[in-house]
């Protein structure tokens, strides 16, 4: 049997997915036995030009992590799609936008002003009010930068994707399970998320009883006990709406699940799913009381319900009308 050809690429990501791949430890040698790694900028040689020269479909499997924010990343997504038989959207950034996707509440101009404008968010000295430019003329010539887009997109909003691997980053055991499925040609139907289709609650060792919430607490406000369900103690634990696969690691160190594995099959919008799950545990029928419980305990609905998934949500980004930038009114966005 001839060896398969594997590519691993990163776009707008943090590098944690690469570390997660390396965390499969000695099994990485097995990957090396079964695949020729034709392109993996983090760990092996291989240039973009070499990928460009491959025939279309010349790569068997490409694991692509990171969202799409610049012209360079868009080009790489298109190139690797064309060259790969199977394109896997690897991790939360590629699949949902992840934390960087929260930048879709802002526009490019707002982000640039925050970072580079003197007297704004940061403390840079910029009396000439310079901004990074796609083209800059210097005495010796012209320098180019990739274009920074207004909106961060997921991989599947850019090109067609065959499979998804959830997690920020995916856990090593799940990465190995996915690679095994690829090696043994036991892949689920195209478009599937490779992973368990239950929730973090199903893996969580904490004791559960009836959930009735009169008040949501923020993590800094209470010391939860180490045995009881965190949601029952009033903490917004996202486990109830989050895909299993991590074995409830965060609740085991007494921290609520923050939702990094995304939604289960058939859920179009993670935030809506979590909102509806939380709505069902609020112990009140009085609209004013419900309003107060939510406003006090969940001051940032976008950041709570769409922490990892804003870019792929039904909302996708803050509204822009006729070129006028309108900031999301957060409570309203969550109520929608």
């Amino acid at each position: 049997m001839s060896k398969g050809k594997l590519a691993i690429y990163w776009a707008a990501s943090c590098g944690g997915c690469e570390i997660a791949v390396l965390a499969i430890d000695e099994k990485i040698l097995k990957v090396g036995e079964l695949f020729d790694i034709v392109f993996w900028p983090c760990a092996a040689d291989g240039k973009v030009r070499d990928v460009e020269k491959l025939p279309d479909g010349g790569i068997d499997v490409c694991l692509f992590n990171g969202g799409i924010r610049t012209s360079e990343q868009e080009y790489m997504a298109q190139l690797l799609r064309r060259k790969s038989k199977v394109l896997v959207s690897f991790g939360s950034c590629a699949s949902e936008g992840c934390i960087p996707g929260l930048s879709n509440v802002n526009t490019k101009r707002q982000i640039f002003d925050a970072v580079y404008k003197q007297g704004e968010m940061t403390y840079c000295e910029n009396p000439q009010d310079l901004r990074p430019q796609p083209h800059t003329t210097v005495p010796e010539g012209t320098l180019y930068l990739p274009v920074f887009y207004d909106t961060l997109r997921t991989l599947d909003q850019t090109v067609e994707v065959d499979y998804y691997l959830p997690g920020c980053p995916p856990e090593a055991e799940n990465i190995w399970a996915a690679l095994t499925a690829i090696i043994e040609n036991k892949l689920p139907p195209k478009g599937s998320v490779i992973g368990r289709n239950t929730t973090v609650c199903d893996e969580c060792p904490r004791k559960r009883s009836e959930k009735k919430i009169k008040k949501f607490y923020r993590t800094w406000q209470i010391q939860p006990d180490e045995e009881t369900c965190l949601l029952e103690q009033g903490l917004v634990c996202c486990g109830i709406a989050t895909r299993a696969g991590c074995k409830a690691l965060c609740p085991q160190v007494n921290s609520p699940c923050i939702g990094c594995h995304g939604a289960n099959d058939g859920v179009a919008d993670f935030g809506a799913r979590l909102m509806s799950a939380l709505a069902s545990v609020i112990d009140s029928n009085d609209p004013d009381e419900i309003d107060r419980i939510i406003k006090e305990g969940i001051p940032d609905p976008v950041g709570t319900f769409y922490r990892f998934s804003l870019a792929r949500s039904l909302l996708r980004r803050s509204k822009r009308t006729n070129g006028v930038e309108v900031e999301v009114h957060r409570p309203a966005a969550a109520a929608r």
Binding site: A12, S13, C14, G15, G16, C17, E18, I19, A20, R69, T70, E72, C98, I99, P100, L102, S103, V105, N106, Q110, I111, A114, V115, M121, T122, P132, P146, F148, C168, P169, R218, T219, W220, I258, P299, D300, V302, G303, R307, R330
Partner: peptide
Amino acid sequence: ELRGFEKFCVGRPAEDMPNLTARICG
């Protein structure tokens, strides 16, 4: 490239920052 954490973290609860900013670098 740039991701703009300085801007999009505004509006978030501060106690989320250890988790949000961890995603600056894996």
